[in-house]
Computed example of a mutant assay.
Amino acid sequence: MRLPEILSRIAPLAVLIPLAACSTTGQPPLVPMIPTFAPVRPPVDSALAEPCISAAATKYFLSESNIKAVEAEPIGGGVNQVRLKADLRDAMCTVTDKGKVRSVVDTMPKSADQAAADEAAARKATDPSATPAEPEPAKKTKKTSG
């Protein structure tokens, strides 16, 4: 079945119509954009964020550039909680108004690897002589023919 002659001439143009709607001139698009809403969080005070970030960097063995303070909230008595994003982990830091860090606690469950590493570190801290000994290299012996 063949298309009528007029449709065979118009069909290639119909394919190009969506491309004509695209423009690189910086003009607003013809289709209205749907706005997305993200919660607006006030920035975390640097007097609270900096001590928490450095404490988390020490705890997780990360550089401070990999850790950011997401939000802070006062819990009373001059104590604040600062929510941290440390690489892939989420953590909660408790810090005083004067910048003294009380604790940095994970708020995500630990993986099996993290639990095993923490257990090994705890054993090493309680008994430093319990470090695993390296196997001694096998001594080579010369066979004498005789």
Rank of each mutant, 00 (worst) to 15 (best):
A11T: 09
A11R: 11
P12C: 10
L13Q: 04
L13E: 04
L13T: 04
L13W: 10
A14E: 05
A14I: 15
L16M: 14
P18L: 07
P18T: 04
L19Q: 04
C22Y: 09
Q27V: 14
P29Q: 10
L30W: 11
L30Q: 12
L30Y: 06
P32H: 10
P32W: 07
M33Y: 04
I34R: 14
P35I: 05
P35Q: 10
T36Y: 08
F37C: 07
F37K: 14
F37W: 13
P39G: 10
V40E: 11
V44D: 00
V44H: 00
V44N: 00
D45K: 01
S46M: 01
S46W: 00
A47P: 00
A47Q: 01
L48F: 01
C52T: 01
C52F: 01
C52A: 05
I53G: 00
S54M: 07
A55F: 03
A55H: 05
T58K: 13
T58Q: 11
K59D: 10
F61H: 13
F61S: 14
L62Y: 04
L62F: 05
E64I: 02
E64M: 05
S65V: 12
N66L: 11
V70D: 15
P74Y: 01
I75Q: 08
G78V: 08
N80F: 09
Q81D: 15
V82C: 00
R83L: 14
R83G: 02
L84W: 01
K85D: 11
A86D: 02
D87L: 11
L88I: 09
R89Y: 08
D90S: 11
D90T: 10
D90E: 11
T94M: 03
V95Y: 01
V95N: 01
D97C: 02
K98T: 15
V101F: 12
S103K: 12
S103L: 04
V104P: 01
T107C: 05
M108F: 05
P109N: 12
P109V: 10
P109L: 14
K110I: 07
S111V: 13
A112T: 07
A112W: 04
A112D: 09
Q114P: 07
A115I: 13
A115K: 14
A116R: 10
D118N: 09
E119D: 14
A120V: 03
A120L: 13
A121I: 03
A121D: 07
A122P: 02
R123C: 03
R123N: 08
A125F: 10
T126Y: 07
T126R: 13
D127E: 08
D127H: 09
P128H: 08
P128I: 08
T131M: 11
T131V: 15
P132E: 09
P135E: 12
P135A: 15
E136K: 15
P137M: 08
K139I: 15
K140H: 04
T141G: 06
T141N: 06
T141Y: 09
T141P: 02
K142F: 13
K142L: 14
K142N: 10
